[in-house]
Each structure stands twice: as structure tokens, then as C-alpha cells.
Design a protein around this nucleic acid. Structure first.
Lengths: 205, 205
DNA sequence: ATACTAAACGGACTACGGTCCGGATAATAT
DNA sequence: ATATTATCCGGACCGTAGTCCGTTTAGTAT
């Protein structure tokens, strides 16, 4: 069993030591301004320049706080992300521990689909790292969780890569394309996911 | 049965009519310069400014020819892409018609994995459209092919979405991450793909 | 209070993808 | 040859993410 350091999402703190008061104040200003801007222009319409101006700080401050645009988006998502993590790691079955692995897999997909549809553009923008989006703590955690459930379900073959395939299926960009462009219903997504994982873990006669 | 208009990849021609002689000359200059630059700096190191300068044309010309950076990359890949398309649509079994659907699915994955590993950065850069990368002709064709094979194999449930999951599994960015960062071997990828599609199409007892 | 220092600040700067439009030019008609 | 026109050309221009570095400031030691 592995226990990660408990929801290591992204606090928005650059250094390791305590935070200076002006830094803390600016972080709040920035998060507040970001939420305002997203409400006004949507997540895709948020630019780092507009954000800096709205918050009344320099552009450098924005990047020192959040590292990148994707980092900012992750910070904005961190509360709901932590909530979701808590549910699938410690919450009630079938998402949390207690239910059989296959049930948990199905619930995980449904949960993630709901999450992505709720925070659509934000989730997509958070994924838009130029570098490896697969090494973001949250992504690593999902992957490990899927891998763990696959093992528990008795999957023989390469749970690591299978977890990767499953992660790919739940990729925000694809899900949003299916729903928004192709008009696929969330229920249909969930059902397809259920079929997928069910067939995956079914033992080879 | 559907027969697409036969390998509609991307010719690099903007208008619909015939091409003016200077335009044709510049297109050749650009493709040649692009291949040079990729050899020198890698696909990721190619910028549209450098390309224009190297080819001795204006920047506008580059974008009129190829539409975008991703469009240029697709054009550079079009020969090998056409070759791959020809193989899985008309070539010899097990990739081409004649073999049982499951065999063809397995071969398709292996072929695609080989393709992505061969043209790595190029394939990834070609996928990097800002807009919907899922509507690129080549991607649509793969998707339809996978969907068709899934149906042929007797899959009951939602072949369209299942084909989408399978496409996601074969996404260049993910494959390259697995191989280059995680050190997964191509054989392991192929084996995992084989397991995945085999389990998918296995009938529900 | 004063001096000191590490941290944070700000905004000019770069790199890059992509757009625009006035001017050049190849094909065609006369 | 000349005129006409649709197409193409070039490079200045824009918006955006991200970097850099001289300046300011919060916290702390004296």
C-alpha cells in the first residue's frame, strides 16, 4: 500500500520557507482577480497580462507565484481536486475503499467524467503544460490509483500501461470534444467507460 | 462500407485552383528548408521565422502555404502517412483486409506504435493544433478504421467511443512519454495494446 | 531607530505563432 | 506588346507566455 504525502496538489508557494506578508497578499489578490476574469471571459480568455493588470501587480509576480499559466489553473482547481482525491481515496464506497475494485473503477471514471464536465475549460487549461503533463502530482496520483485498482481486480497484464490507457480515455480534451463537439451525453460516456473497464479486468476464461 | 476520398492528408495547397509557378517554387524551397532545419535543430527547434529566413521567403508565405505550424508538420509527414494509410486499408494482411478483425486491430496498433516511434517529434508537433486535433483528416480516418474493425469484431457496445479510447491510447505524446521518459520498450507497448484490444472485443461469455 | 539581507517586486524584454495589407507578379486576354 | 486581374509575396505588426534584472521592501539582528 502506498500513501502519498496527502494531496500534494500545488499551493502556489514558490520557495520552501514561510511566506512574506506582501507575497501572501498578492497571492490572494491574484486568485481573486483570476476568478473574476474567468467569470467575465472564460478560462480560455484569461491572459497573464490581463491578470497582472487586474490584480494590480507586475507580470513577474504572477509567474513567480504560479510558475506558468497551467500552474495557475491547477491552483484554481486545487480545492475541488483535493475534494475529489479525498473522495476516491478515503470516501465512502463505491468510489472510496470498501467496494470491490471493479465497482471502484467504474465509480472513478464516472467521478472523473463529472469533474471534467463541471470544470471543463479550467481542467483543460490546467493540462496544457508544455512540458510533461503526465508528471503533475495529481495526474501521477490518478494513475497510481487506477493501477492499484487494476491490480486489485486481478488484472494480469501490465497494469501500469493499462492505467495509462485508461487515463488517456479520461483526458479532459477528449472528453470535452466528445461532449461539446460530438454531442455525446455524459451518461453515454459513463456507460462506455463501464464497458471498457469491465471488459479489461474480466479474467481470461 | 465507406470509402474516403483516398488519402486526403494535406497537400499544402491553399486555394482550390491550379498553383502559380512562384507558389510551387516557394513550396519546394520551404519543404526543403524545413527538412534541413529539422535535421539541424530537431522538429521542436524549428520555428516559423527561422524557416522563412532559411527558405528566403517572407513569413506570410509560410503561413499561406501551410496554415499553421502543425499544418507544416503534417505536410512533412504526408508521404509516410499516406504509405501507412495505404497499408492498413489496402495492404496485405494482417494489417490490411483479409485477416480477422482482431488480428487487424492488433496489427494496427503495432503499426501505429512503430510509426510514432519513428517520426516521434514530428508526429507530436503535427498533433499540436490549438483547435480540434481530432478533426484532422488523418485522425478521422484512423478513428473510423478502428470503429469499423471493432464492429467487425462483433463489439456490441458503443464502437465510436471505444475507438476514441483506443485512439487516445495511441496518442503520440503519451507513447513518446512512455518510451522516452519511462523507458517502456516498444515491445511492451505492443503487448499491452494486444491485451487491451483482445479483452475489449472478447464476447461477454 | 538603524542597518542588513533575503525575498519579492515590476515591467521592459524576448521568442514565437499567427495576421494583415499594400505592393509585386504570373497567367491570360486583347 | 500591352493591359488586366487574380494570386501571391513580404515583412511589419499583434497577442501571448515566459524571462531577466535592477529596485524595493518585509523581516530580523543590533
Amino acid at each position: 500500500m502506498f500513501l502519498v504525502s496527502l494531496i500534494p496538489i500545488r499551493s502556489g508557494t514558490p520557495g520552501s520557507g514561510p511566506e512574506r506578508s506582501d507575497a501572501a497578499r498578492n497571492r490572494e489578490l491574484l486568485l481573486c482577480a483570476a476568478r473574476q476574469l474567468i467569470e467575465e471571459c472564460g478560462a480560455d480568455g484569461l491572459t497573464m497580462d490581463k491578470l497582472a493588470e487586474r490584480a494590480g501587480v507586475g507580470k513577474g509576480t504572477v509567474f513567480r507565484r504560479f510558475g506558468s499559466r497551467a500552474g495557475l489553473m491547477m491552483t484554481l482547481l486545487s480545492d475541488s481536486e483535493a475534494e475529489f482525491q479525498g473522495r476516491f481515496m478515503f470516501g465512502p464506497p463505491p468510489l472510496g475503499p470498501g467496494a470491490p475494485p471493479l465497482e471502484r473503477l467504474i465509480a472513478f471514471g464516472a467521478g472523473r467524467i463529472g469533474y471534467v464536465l463541471e470544470y471543463g475549460d479550467l481542467a483543460r487549461a490546467a493540462d496544457h503544460s508544455v512540458y510533461n503533463r503526465f508528471e503533475v502530482p495529481a495526474a501521477v496520483l490518478w494513475h497510481r490509483h487506477l493501477e492499484y485498482l487494476l491490480r486489485e481486480a486481478g488484472l494480469e497484464a501490465d497494469p501500469w500501461l493499462m492505467a495509462m490507457s485508461l487515463s488517456a480515455t479520461l483526458d479532459p480534451e477528449r472528453l470535452l470534444y466528445a461532449v461539446r463537439v460530438q454531442g455525446v451525453s455524459p451518461e453515454r460516456l459513463e456507460e462506455s467507460w463501464r464497458q471498457l473497464v469491465t471488459r479489461l479486468v474480466r479474467p481470461a476464461e
